[in-house]
Simulated assay, not measured.
Amino acid sequence: MQKTFLYSVYLFCMLLVITACGQTTEMRPIDKLYSNIQPLQYKSMNRYFIEANQSGCFYELYVNGRLVFEHFEQVGLMGHTTCINDAILKSGMQEVTVKLYPLGQTEVERFDTFTKNARIEVKIEKYDTQVKDSDEKVVTFKIPEASTRNKNDIKIEGLPYYEHTFTFYAEVPYEVTGWSESQDLTKMDQKQLEKEVVAFYNNLSDVIYNQDEAKWVSLVKNRELEILTSEAYNNVNEHVIKSRVKEFKEDFNSSFKRKFPLDKYKMIFGGKGRIVALKSIEHRGMSAFSFGVNRTIFDKLKKIRAFRYIYLHKPKGSNKLEIIR
């Protein structure tokens, strides 16, 4: 009797093993996108970062026409660093634009122009991932405080807006196409372009709302592969890439879904007119494109409205908008 029972248990266990072996887990489209990626190895693997310290103003930072960082909160912000390699297509001169804005309405007063204490310092730094302790300051742009000003300093006191552009030389071992061969969108009929951009954003909103992960991957594939090459040197184990994949998966795992209409917007161009995005004029520093999604914040699942900049271009020989950043 005991032998018969043990034999039955054995057969049941074997059946479980055989069944499990016969099953295959289908890899998700997002996982497929980042699979079979071999890390790049060069003698030099520079990564460039932008950082700003500011007081008495808000700001946006653009690299080669693409917004890479913005700060519009009524709190001080110091010591942030943002990798900008995905805005650098190849070695050569790169363009940085700093856009400054007054504080507007604060808890105690309204500031429609810059005060005498408004200041900002923007730094570009690099380090070689192949070389230990290779941090190097590349360039610094600074509007000093009133106490250090002289007749040659930039003066923004009393202005409602200020913009400054400077350049720096970047040396990277890769070269990605990006928007370098794309059409100049500023030469198109702007009303027609606007219709096409709005239609693209609305279609993307549907794709995310319907949680069509495969379709989404087909739309962002070129962007993601270029970001992998330029920012992470194809290292999918980089923290920034892991965080990126995690966030994308959350978009398609979300139990909360909501479509938001585009904010009132203006079209902004970058890359010498070759890329375009819709910038909100309702929420300062934000994209006009957004969607509802669950996010885990301080260990609690919350429903949020996620704003995300989507830069579009028309590749050479094509009349169709595509996502490039």
Rank of each mutant, 00 (worst) to 15 (best):
Q2L: 13
Q2A: 08
Y7D: 03
V17H: 07
I18N: 11
I18P: 03
T24M: 09
L33F: 06
Y34C: 05
N36R: 08
Q41N: 15
K43Y: 05
S44Q: 13
M45S: 11
Y48C: 00
Y48K: 02
A52N: 07
A52F: 05
N53K: 03
N53G: 05
Q54L: 03
G56C: 09
G56K: 07
G56A: 10
C57I: 01
L61T: 04
L61M: 09
E70M: 08
E70R: 13
Q74N: 14
G76R: 06
M78Y: 07
T81R: 09
T81K: 08
T81H: 03
T82M: 08
C83N: 15
I84Y: 05
I84W: 04
N85G: 04
D86C: 07
I88E: 01
L89I: 06
K90F: 01
S91D: 04
S91Q: 06
E95F: 01
E95L: 06
T97H: 02
V98C: 13
L100I: 07
L103I: 08
T106L: 11
E107V: 12
F114I: 11
F114D: 11
R119N: 12
V122H: 01
I124G: 00
Y127S: 00
Q130C: 11
K132T: 12
D135Y: 10
T140H: 00
F141E: 02
I143N: 02
P144K: 07
E145R: 15
T148W: 13
R149Y: 02
I154E: 00
I154G: 02
K155N: 15
I156Y: 04
G158R: 12
Y162I: 11
H164I: 01
F166E: 06
T167W: 00
Y169F: 04
E171Y: 09
E171Q: 13
V172M: 04
Y174C: 08
Y174P: 06
G178H: 09
W179R: 03
E181I: 05
E181T: 15
K187H: 11
K187C: 08
Q190W: 06
Q190D: 01
Q192K: 15
Q192N: 14
K195E: 11
E196R: 14
V197Q: 05
Y201D: 08
N202S: 12
N202T: 13
N202R: 15
Y209L: 10
Q211V: 00
D212C: 01
E213M: 09
A214D: 11
K215G: 05
K215V: 09
W216H: 10
V217H: 04
K221N: 12
N222L: 04
L225A: 06
I227N: 05
V236D: 06
H239R: 12
I241F: 04
S243I: 02
S243V: 06
R244Q: 11
R244L: 10
V245M: 13
K246P: 01
E247G: 12
F252Q: 04
N253I: 02
F256S: 02
R258I: 00
R258M: 10
R258L: 06
F260R: 07
F260K: 05
P261T: 13
K264L: 10
K266V: 15
I268M: 09
G271F: 03
R274C: 07
V276H: 05
L278W: 08
K279I: 02
S287Y: 11
A288T: 11
S290V: 02
V293T: 14
R295M: 10
T296F: 00
I297G: 04
I297H: 08
D299T: 11
K303M: 03
A306K: 15
A306F: 14
F307D: 12
L321A: 07
I323L: 11
R325I: 01
